[in-house]
Amino acid sequence: RIRTTFTSAQLKELERVFAETHYPDIYTREELALKIDLTEARVQVWFQNRRAKFRK
Protein backbone atom coordinates (compact mmCIF):
# COMPACT_ATOMS: atom_id res chain seq x y z
CA ARG A 1 0.00 0.00 0.00
CA ILE A 2 1.30 3.43 -0.91
CA ARG A 3 1.40 6.27 1.57
CA THR A 4 -1.80 8.33 1.61
CA THR A 5 -1.40 12.01 0.88
CA PHE A 6 -4.17 14.07 2.41
CA THR A 7 -5.51 17.19 0.73
CA SER A 8 -5.74 20.38 2.78
CA ALA A 9 -9.54 20.05 2.70
CA GLN A 10 -9.32 16.50 4.08
CA LEU A 11 -6.91 17.58 6.81
CA LYS A 12 -9.12 20.51 7.74
CA GLU A 13 -12.08 18.15 8.19
CA LEU A 14 -10.02 15.55 10.09
CA GLU A 15 -8.64 18.23 12.44
CA ARG A 16 -12.15 19.63 12.97
CA VAL A 17 -13.39 16.24 14.18
CA PHE A 18 -10.22 15.71 16.23
CA ALA A 19 -10.94 18.99 18.05
CA GLU A 20 -14.34 17.58 19.05
CA THR A 21 -13.19 14.08 20.00
CA HIS A 22 -9.87 12.22 19.97
CA TYR A 23 -11.75 8.90 19.83
CA PRO A 24 -14.50 9.07 17.17
CA ASP A 25 -16.75 6.00 17.05
CA ILE A 26 -17.16 3.81 13.98
CA TYR A 27 -20.23 5.73 12.78
CA THR A 28 -18.43 9.07 13.00
CA ARG A 29 -15.38 7.64 11.21
CA GLU A 30 -17.46 6.08 8.42
CA GLU A 31 -19.46 9.28 7.92
CA LEU A 32 -16.25 11.32 7.83
CA ALA A 33 -14.61 8.87 5.41
CA LEU A 34 -17.53 9.19 2.99
CA LYS A 35 -17.52 12.97 3.31
CA ILE A 36 -13.82 13.38 2.53
CA ASP A 37 -13.53 10.45 0.10
CA LEU A 38 -11.21 8.19 2.11
CA THR A 39 -11.62 4.67 3.47
CA GLU A 40 -12.64 4.26 7.10
CA ALA A 41 -9.34 2.44 7.69
CA ARG A 42 -7.32 5.49 6.56
CA VAL A 43 -9.40 7.71 8.84
CA GLN A 44 -8.84 5.33 11.77
CA VAL A 45 -5.06 5.28 11.22
CA TRP A 46 -4.98 9.07 10.87
CA PHE A 47 -6.63 9.37 14.30
CA GLN A 48 -4.17 6.87 15.81
CA ASN A 49 -1.25 8.89 14.46
CA ARG A 50 -2.81 12.22 15.43
CA ARG A 51 -3.32 11.04 19.02
CA ALA A 52 0.33 9.94 19.17
CA LYS A 53 1.37 13.39 17.90
CA PHE A 54 -0.95 15.04 20.44
CA ARG A 55 0.65 13.12 23.35
CA LYS A 56 4.15 14.31 22.44
Rank of each mutant, 00 (worst) to 15 (best):
1 R>T: 10
1 R>Y: 03
1 R>E: 14
1 R>D: 15
1 R>V: 09
1 R>S: 12
1 R>W: 07
1 R>M: 07
1 R>G: 10
2 I>C: 08
2 I>L: 09
2 I>P: 10
2 I>T: 14
2 I>N: 14
3 R>S: 15
3 R>P: 15
3 R>G: 15
4 T>I: 11
5 T>R: 10
5 T>N: 13
5 T>W: 09
6 F>A: 03
6 F>I: 12
6 F>G: 03
7 T>C: 04
7 T>M: 02
7 T>W: 00
7 T>H: 03
7 T>I: 01
7 T>N: 09
7 T>R: 04
7 T>Q: 02
7 T>L: 03
8 S>D: 14
8 S>K: 08
9 A>S: 10
9 A>R: 10
9 A>D: 09
9 A>G: 09
10 Q>E: 05
10 Q>M: 04
10 Q>G: 00
10 Q>C: 02
10 Q>R: 02
11 L>F: 00
11 L>E: 15
11 L>A: 08
11 L>I: 12
11 L>D: 10
12 K>V: 11
12 K>N: 08
12 K>E: 11
13 E>V: 05
13 E>D: 00
13 E>T: 04
14 L>Q: 01
14 L>G: 04
14 L>A: 03
14 L>M: 08
14 L>R: 04
14 L>H: 02
14 L>E: 03
15 E>C: 06
15 E>A: 02
15 E>N: 08
15 E>I: 00
15 E>G: 01
16 R>S: 15
17 V>S: 05
17 V>M: 07
17 V>H: 02
17 V>C: 08
17 V>E: 00
18 F>K: 02
18 F>L: 02
18 F>N: 06
19 A>T: 12
19 A>M: 06
19 A>V: 07
19 A>W: 07
19 A>S: 10
19 A>E: 14
19 A>G: 11
19 A>Q: 12
20 E>Y: 10
20 E>S: 10
20 E>P: 00
20 E>N: 10
20 E>V: 11
20 E>K: 13
21 T>V: 06
21 T>R: 05
21 T>D: 05
21 T>G: 07
21 T>A: 06
22 H>T: 04
22 H>G: 03
22 H>W: 07
23 Y>L: 01
23 Y>C: 07
23 Y>F: 09
23 Y>A: 04
24 P>A: 02
24 P>I: 07
24 P>Q: 03
25 D>M: 01
25 D>N: 08
25 D>P: 04
25 D>A: 06
25 D>V: 02
25 D>C: 04
25 D>W: 00
26 I>C: 07
26 I>P: 14
26 I>D: 10
27 Y>S: 15
27 Y>A: 15
27 Y>R: 15
27 Y>G: 15
27 Y>W: 10
28 T>R: 14
28 T>V: 12
28 T>A: 13
29 R>T: 08
29 R>Y: 06
30 E>P: 06
30 E>K: 15
30 E>M: 11
30 E>R: 14
30 E>A: 14
30 E>F: 06
30 E>L: 13
31 E>T: 11
31 E>Y: 09
31 E>F: 05
31 E>D: 13
32 L>A: 01
32 L>P: 02
32 L>I: 07
33 A>M: 00
33 A>E: 05
33 A>Q: 00
33 A>N: 00
33 A>Y: 01
34 L>M: 12
34 L>C: 09
34 L>I: 10
34 L>H: 13
35 K>N: 06
35 K>Q: 09
35 K>H: 01
35 K>V: 05
36 I>W: 09
36 I>Y: 10
36 I>A: 10
36 I>G: 02
36 I>Q: 05
37 D>I: 02
37 D>T: 03
37 D>L: 05
37 D>G: 14
37 D>H: 09
37 D>F: 00
38 L>Q: 08
38 L>F: 00
38 L>A: 15
39 T>S: 12
39 T>A: 08
39 T>G: 04
39 T>D: 13
39 T>M: 04
40 E>A: 10
40 E>V: 09
40 E>M: 06
41 A>K: 13
41 A>Y: 08
41 A>F: 06
41 A>N: 09
41 A>L: 08
42 R>N: 15
42 R>Y: 11
42 R>F: 13
42 R>M: 15
43 V>N: 05
43 V>P: 03
43 V>T: 02
43 V>W: 01
43 V>M: 04
43 V>R: 02
44 Q>I: 06
44 Q>D: 14
44 Q>S: 13
45 V>I: 11
45 V>L: 12
45 V>S: 12
46 W>Y: 02
46 W>D: 00
46 W>H: 00
46 W>K: 00
46 W>Q: 02
46 W>E: 00
46 W>L: 01
46 W>N: 06
47 F>M: 01
47 F>Y: 06
47 F>G: 00
47 F>D: 04
47 F>H: 00
48 Q>K: 14
48 Q>W: 06
48 Q>S: 11
48 Q>F: 02
48 Q>Y: 07
49 N>V: 07
49 N>S: 12
49 N>F: 08
49 N>L: 10
49 N>P: 05
49 N>T: 12
49 N>Y: 09
49 N>D: 15
50 R>E: 14
50 R>C: 06
50 R>L: 02
50 R>P: 01
50 R>G: 01
50 R>D: 00
51 R>S: 04
51 R>V: 05
51 R>E: 00
51 R>K: 05
51 R>T: 06
51 R>L: 06
52 A>N: 15
52 A>Q: 09
52 A>S: 12
52 A>D: 12
52 A>C: 06
52 A>M: 11
52 A>R: 12
53 K>N: 12
53 K>R: 13
53 K>Q: 13
53 K>V: 13
53 K>Y: 06
54 F>R: 07
54 F>A: 14
54 F>C: 11
54 F>Y: 12
54 F>M: 14
55 R>V: 06
56 K>S: 15
56 K>M: 12
56 K>V: 08
56 K>C: 14
56 K>L: 10
